[in-house]
Each structure stands twice: as structure tokens, then as C-alpha cells.
Design a protein around this nucleic acid. Structure first.
Length: 502
RNA sequence: GGCCCCAUCGACUAGCGGUUAGGUCACCACCCUUUCAAGGUGGCGGGACGGGUUCGAAUCCCGUUGGGGUCACCA
């Protein structure tokens, strides 16, 4: 037997943003199939015309690719199994639907939605399970509707849907890769609509047809699809097709353990991108929600490549996982810590330039936008920021003179002598030929010692005057990076502004 | 409610019959330290419950409870 080529798909409907749960589903599909050197396919499920959102498809693809999950076949890339948009495959569904009709596995149903609703209410009132009452099941299929009646409706051009006829009292069984054997009884299954009255297929029908025709070997999808498995399996049986293997992923949960949804925080990948999370961190994080390497491995940080190498469906857990932002934040920091300065510079320079356009600075722009200056800032701030954009926003004093001084810091660090001391010390700084961290530290200590003061007496005020705030990187290094001119300017100006209140 | 899935620290999880139940995040303390981080050390904290099976169960089986999903001409 020839080894078959593994193929998986991610099949979202273009109704807007990419859900983080969707991203994880896509990722697992991708990891699984890439490890097996197979094909990852993007298919668009746009069989609900009313929910279609303009631009959603492009957005989905863009976000997926941002995350590094690049499909081998997709609507824009094409492939041997196209079209990859369901609305362009209507004739295919029609053909297979006719086949089902022919084989008496499906039937026309002329019930109106009002009728169905009425029926549903009635069943509910009687304490029964709401289920289609099979009013339109033809006589020759074991129902009560005479074919003459059906023909009449047809001739009138009445709108109809096509339903599958679920056989009574059969048990449907399959082996889920993640969950093991799962069994259903057909009596609990409704006669699912296959073709809607607008001529479009339902998800259930279209996905089975496409999954077969596109030759997917593994269907990896969210657990919310588990209850519709019997319908799908029955369809494979009707057609005489061998079903692919299935893996139903545990759900991503809100903090209250309900299915992850809007209203309880951000669910769109785009939201996280906008907040500044990197693709590496998001992918890493989402991969670990439900999967781990096991066998005593304690690794937490994985690259996409490593995930591809190590992933396996067998090690996906069964229980839902809460999307915990704390851990995501920690991961983001890990990535920032290890990211090359070059890459960070590339990312933040445009942000900085944008800031500079909004606000004038007394710093020499050519200096503060230079790679060498930014690299120094990155060196000092890398372990202090949570997002890349914070290299610009978290410590604006690298780019702008402070306009205000943190009140609490001043209150805490100023004494009656502070301004006098600073006035003296600034002249020393001004005389410095080499404005280096080492030199500054040396001078400061030499200045402070004979006066019986601690270095802190000057360190804190200097920081506040030069940065506006009481926290930040090593003072000496910060001053060196800011440069002699800026430091002297800031101190001199600060002394005028900050008056000791003690 | 019917059907289906699930169940180890607050969160993510390791464990696949014998472990002082391990790690990460968060939290707390201490150390380092000019501050803030980062880092280091330690701490807090867990197998829902009840029955079996077994010499021995977090681990296997059954039940209970709890949580979730799903019951559309939406996916």
C-alpha cells in the first residue's frame, strides 16, 4: 500500500475576525499535517449568504499568515482541489444531492418556517424533543406523503428544502483520535436539512462533500462539532465513502468556564495583535492550551518550527482550557527578552517617528531615531517592557524631555539641600569629557562621599529630573544614553520647577 | 430537558497501578539592588464525591455530583 499523503483543513466562515479558538484549530491542523509533511488547506465556508461580511475572507487569511500559518492551498493560492470557496461549488453539491434523492436517502420538504416553529412549540409543550415531524417524508420512503402531493407543490414552484432521511434505530459509532470511541443512537438525530431553500447547502452537507472530494485524511475541529458527527457519518455511509479520521479539540474557555466568547474579553486574534502581542507568543500560548509534550518535559517556550517537530494529536488533552492572559503576557516578555535588537528597531522606529510627528522634542531627532541610539534604549529597557511598542511609550524620556515630575517621588526624595546639591553636581557633569556611565558613577560617588551623604541622595533626584519618574533602568546608563546635553538641560530646568515641599 | 463530551493546585498542565503528587503562570516572603524590572531561593496551593477491582489506586470499572457543548433553511 502506498503511504497516503496527509491533508488537513481549516474551514472558517467569513463572518468577521479570526477567533482565537479558530486560530488554535488552524494551528493544530497545521502542526499535525506539517509534521507529517502533508498539505494544509484553507477553505471558505460561506454557505450562509446572510452572514457574509465583506473583506472577512482576506482578513482571515492575513491574520493566519501573520501567525505563520500559511496554507498550501487556498482561494487565493489555488490548488488541485478547488474551488476553495463553497459558494463557488454549488453545482457540485447539487449533483451529490440529486444522488441522495435518487437513492432515497433524502427528500423534499415543503414545510414553512412558521409551520416548523409551530410544530416545535407543540412538541416542547408536550415535553417532547423538538424534532422534524417528517410530514413530507414520501410514502415510498416509509413516510405518509403521497408523491402526487409532492409533485403538485413542485409544479406550483413552492420553496423547499432537502432533508436527509436518518434511518431509525441504528447506532452510529466512530473512534475519535482524542476521545476514543463515541457512540450515538440515530433516534436522537433530526432529519437534517441538506439543501436550503435558497439553493445553498448547509454546513453539514457541504463540509462532508468537500472533505471527501478534497481528500482530507484528518478532520481536526472544535468539540462543538461532536454532536453533529452522526449526521456526517451517515452521509459518508449514504455515499459509500470512507470517512476521514476525526479529532475533536477541547474548547477554549472564558474564566467562568463557558465557551470563549466576546463579552468576556477579547476573542479576536486581531484584538491581540492590536494590543501588541507577537505572533510567536500567541502561537506558543495557544498551542499550549490543550497540548503539551509530556514525558517530563518542562519546556514552556516553543517556536513554530519546534511545535511542528514535536506536536502530536495523541498528546492533546480532553478538557477545555481557560484562556489566561497572565501566561500570555509572560510569554510575550520571554520573546522580547530574546528578540534581536535589529528586529525590535525595525518595529519601533515607525512608532517613534509617528510620536515625533505628534509632539515636538528638544532631543536631536537624528540622534534619537538612529539605530545606535535605539539599540541602547533597547538594551536598557528590554527586561522592563511587556510589549514591543512600550520601548517607545513606556519610557518616553528617552525621546522627550519630561514635562512633569512624579509627585510622590519628589515628596519622598527631596530634602532642603537637594536642589543646592544638584546645582553643584550639574557643573561637575558639565565638565565631564567622557560622558559615560562609569565616569558619572565615579563622579557622583566622589561628590557624595566627603559630604557624608549616600549616593541615593543624588541618584533619585537625578532620575526624577531626567526621566520624570521614579523608576527605570540603571541611572548611570540611562544618563549616558540620554547624553550630556540633555542631562544638563533637564537637571537645570528641573531645579527651577521642583521645589522642596518638606 | 434529551444526547454527547469532560473532571489533578486560582490558571495551564506532568503523571499512563507503588511518586514526599512534579513543572510553569499568578500570588506571598527573602536575597540581589539607587528605583523598576530581570534573576535567584523559598512558600502558599491540588487528584469533586461514593462505591468497587487490586497486596496497592490521581491512575482501571461503575454510579453520583459538577461543568461544558449541542439540539436552526448559522457555521
Amino acid at each position: 500500500m502506498v503511504a497516503q499523503r496527509f491533508r488537513t483543513r481549516f474551514a472558517p466562515s467569513p463572518t468577521g475576525y479570526l477567533h482565537v479558538g479558530g486560530l488554535r484549530t488552524a494551528l493544530y491542523n497545521y502542526l499535525f499535517v506539517k509534521k507529517m509533511k502533508g498539505d494544509f488547506v484553507l477553505r471558505i465556508e460561506d454557505t450562509d449568504r446572510s452572514r457574509r461580511v465583506e473583506g472577512a475572507q482576506q482578513n482571515l487569511l492575513k491574520t493566519l499568515e501573520w501567525a505563520g500559518i500559511v496554507p498550501d492551498e487556498s482561494p487565493e493560492r489555488g490548488g488541485d482541489f478547488g474551488p476553495y470557496i463553497q459558494s463557488e461549488r454549488l453545482d457540485i453539491y447539487k449533483k451529490y444531492c440529486d444522488e441522495l434523492l435518487e437513492g432515497k436517502y433524502a427528500y423534499y420538504c415543503f414545510a414553512t418556517s412558521e409551520e416548523l416553529e409551530e410544530n416545535r412549540q407543540l412538541q416542547l409543550k408536550q415535553g417532547l424533543q423538538p424534532k422534524y415531524n417528517r410530514k413530507w417524508l414520501p410514502e415510498e420512503m416509509g413516510g405518509s406523503m403521497p408523491s402526487s402531493e409532492i409533485r403538485k407543490k413542485m409544479e406550483q414552484g413552492a420553496p423547499y428544502v432537502i432533508r436527509m432521511k436518518v434511518p431509525d434505530y441504528v447506532s452510529v459509532w466512530f473512534e475519535d483520535i482524542i476521545r476514543g470511541p463515541v457512540e450515538f443512537d440515530s433516534s436522537t438525530i433530526d432529519d437534517q436539512v441538506l439543501m436550503k431553500s435558497d439553493g445553498f447547502p448547509t454546513y453539514h452537507f457541504a463540509s462532508v462533500i468537500d472533505d471527501h472530494l478534497m481528500e482530507f485524511t484528518h478532520i481536526i475541529r472544535g468539540e462543538e462539532w461532536l454532536p453533529s458527527m452522526p449526521k456526517h457519518l451517515l452521509l459518508y455511509e449514504f455515499f459509500g465513502w470512507e470517512p476521514p479520521r476525526f479529532a475533536h479539540l477541547p474548547l477554549l474557555l472564558n474564566p467562568d468556564r463557558s465557551k470563549l466568547s466576546k463579552r468576556q474579553g477579547d476573542v479576536a486574534v486581531e484584538d491581540y495583535i492590536q494590543k501588541g502581542y507577537s505572533a510567536e507568543a500567541i502561537i506558543n500560548f495557544v498551542a499550549m492550551l490543550g497540548w503539551n509534550e509530556g514525558e517530563g518535559t518542562e519546556q514552556e517556550v516553543y517556536s513554530l518550527e519546534q511545535l511542528v517537530e514535536r506536536f502530536s494529536l495523541e498528546r492533546v488533552g480532553k478538557a477545555g482550557a481557560i484562556f489566561n492572559v497572565d501566561k500570555l503576557n509572560w510569554l510575550e516578555k520571554q520573546y522580547i527578552k530574546n528578540r534581536s535588537a535589529d528586529r525590535i528597531i525595525q518595529a519601533i522606529k515607525p512608532l517613534l517617528i509617528g510620536e515625533l510627528e505628534k509632539r515636538p522634542t528638544e532631543m536631536p531627532e537624528s540622534v534619537i531615531t538612529s539605530d545606535s541610539y535605539l539599540e541602547q534604549v533597547i538594551d536598557l529597557m528590554r527586561e522592563r517592557v511587556g510589549f514591543e511598542h512600550e520601548f517607545v511609550t513606556f519610557s518616553p524620556y528617552f525621546f522627550f524631555d519630561p514635562e512633569t515630575y512624579e509627585e510622590e517621588g519628589v515628596r519622598k526624595r527631596w530634602t532642603a539641600d537637594t536642589n543646592t546639591l544638584l546645582r553643584e553636581f550639574v557643573t561637575i557633569l558639565a565638565s565631564l569629557e567622557v560622558f559615560s556611565a562609569e565616569a558619572i558613577e565615579l563622579e557622583l560617588k566622589a561628590f557624595v562621599a566627603p559630604r557624608g551623604l549616600k549616593a541615593a541622595a543624588l541618584i533619585h533626584p537625578l532620575r526624577i529630573l531626567c526621566s520624570g519618574v521614579s523608576f527605570g533602568p540603571s541611572l548611570y546608563h540611562m544618563l549616558e544614553v540620554l547624553g550630556k546635553d540633555a542631562v544638563i538641560r533637564r537637571i537645570s530646568r528641573g531645579i527651577e520647577t521642583v521645589v522642596c515641599v518638606a
